[in-house]
Amino acid sequence: MSTPVPPLPTDDAISQRLARVRAALAELSPSVLELEDESHRHEGHGGHRPGQLTHLRVRIVAQAFAGQNRLARHRLVNGLLADELARGLHALAIEAKAPGE
């Protein structure tokens, strides 16, 4: 007699989202791109979905940010990730710099 197998952890969903985010931000030809899944820090809070990447921190350095203020930089990143934000990415922390900053 076999025990029902619980659903596999959804690492897949997380790695797929990370891959999509990476692909979307490649648009900016970043020289540095670090993605950090911070979802676990928000367990029990609104927007947290176990096994899903809901809270993401993006550290990005790109020439595209040179001469742009903070709002413009964030809008650029938010815009490229609009699909993800519409599909369950709940929080997006952004550290956007131009090279040399």
């Binding site: 709002l71 964030h74 609009a82 934000l85 929080a91």
Partner: peptide, 17 residues
């Protein structure tokens, strides 16, 4: 797309970061 959002004298400043 995200909350919080901060305004000073009617001008949108940004979010938490």
């Amino acid at each position: 797309p995200t909350i919080p959002q901060v305004f000073v004298k009617g001008e949108f400043i940004g979010g938490c970061d």
